[in-house]
Amino acid sequence: MLLAGLIGRPGPAWADTVRLLAFGDSLTAGYNLPQEAAFPVQLEQALRDRGHDVTVLNGGVSGDTTAGGRARLDWVLAQDPDAAIVALGGNDGLRGLDPADTRANLTAIVTRFQDAGIPVLIAGMKAPPNLGRDYGQAFNSVFPDVAEETGALLYPFFLEGVAADPALNQPDGIHPTADGVAVMVEGILPQVEALLDRVE
């Protein structure tokens, strides 16, 4: 009788594994790192350690810009994510691309996810200091502005605590080591949990 009574009951909301997309560039893809050290894998483990039933999908493509990410939105949406971390823009800054274009692309990416019912966390980036103050101000303002305009969550700087630290970066000074990725995960984790709270 007990079994019969349980059959047909709707399961709790948390019964289904949440599919979280990490949508970015080489920082997400895990450039020059073993798979288990890449950001999506380390983030998934950290979330599971905190009791979240989450699968983190690696949507990182090395070298990608916001324009590249915008162009492959159909492909990533086909993976049917429940939530998305958008971590694009670093290559826009490295190449000195027009911040207005970065803003337009990022806005389009975020709104496309939101229109599909997918909540978004923007992982912001900062312009390289060698590009000058004016460029830096224009570029750095893109991420908080888009978050405010769209209502997306914001983690201000994806490489917080890692950028410019030789101990946490590979010899190129740009890409984090496995330990560097661990610092990134620790920093962004509270905002990722806030993102998961928005999943319906």
Rank of each mutant, 00 (worst) to 15 (best):
Thr111Leu: 04
Arg112Gly: 06
Phe113Met: 01
Phe113His: 00
Gln114Lys: 04
Asp115Gly: 13
Asp115His: 12
Asp115Ser: 13
Asp115Met: 07
Ala116Lys: 11
Ala116Trp: 00
Ile118Ser: 00
Ile118Arg: 01
Ile118Thr: 09
Pro119Thr: 06
Pro119Ser: 04
Pro119Met: 01
Pro119Ile: 03
Val120Asp: 10
Leu121Cys: 05
Leu121Val: 06
Leu121Ala: 06
Ile122Asp: 07
Ala123Ile: 07
Ala123Glu: 07
Ala123Arg: 03
Gly124Ala: 05
Met125Lys: 14
Met125Glu: 14
Met125Gln: 14
Lys126Gly: 05
Lys126Val: 10
Ala127Tyr: 02
Pro129Trp: 12
Pro129Tyr: 10
Pro129Cys: 12
Asn130Gly: 08
Leu131Asp: 11
Leu131Val: 09
Gly132Pro: 01
Gly132Tyr: 00
Gly132Asn: 05
Arg133Trp: 05
Arg133Asn: 03
Arg133Ser: 04
Asp134Ala: 13
Asp134Val: 10
Tyr135Cys: 09
Tyr135Leu: 12
Gln137Tyr: 10
Ala138Phe: 06
Ser141Val: 06
Ser141Asp: 14
Val142Thr: 13
Val142Gly: 10
Phe143Trp: 07
Phe143Cys: 04
Phe143Pro: 11
Pro144Met: 10
Asp145His: 10
Asp145Asn: 12
Asp145Gln: 15
Asp145Val: 08
Val146Gln: 07
Val146Glu: 02
Ala147Ser: 02
Ala147Lys: 01
Ala147Asp: 02
Ala147Val: 08
Ala147Leu: 06
Ala147Gln: 03
Ala147His: 01
Glu148Ala: 15
Glu148Leu: 13
Glu149Ser: 12
Glu149His: 13
Glu149Ala: 15
Glu149Arg: 15
Thr150Ser: 04
Gly151Arg: 09
Ala152Gln: 09
Leu153Arg: 01
Leu154Cys: 13
Leu154His: 11
Tyr155Arg: 06
Pro156Ser: 03
Pro156His: 02
Pro156Tyr: 03
Phe157Tyr: 11
Leu159Met: 15
Glu160Gln: 15
Glu160Ala: 15
Val162Asn: 05
Ala163Leu: 14
Ala163Lys: 13
Ala164Leu: 14
Ala164Phe: 15
Asp165Leu: 01
Pro166Glu: 04
Ala167Ile: 08
Leu168His: 12
Leu168Thr: 07
Leu168Phe: 05
Asn169Gly: 13
Gln170Ala: 02
Gln170Arg: 02
Pro171Thr: 08
Pro171Cys: 09
Pro171Asp: 08
Asp172Thr: 05
Asp172His: 02
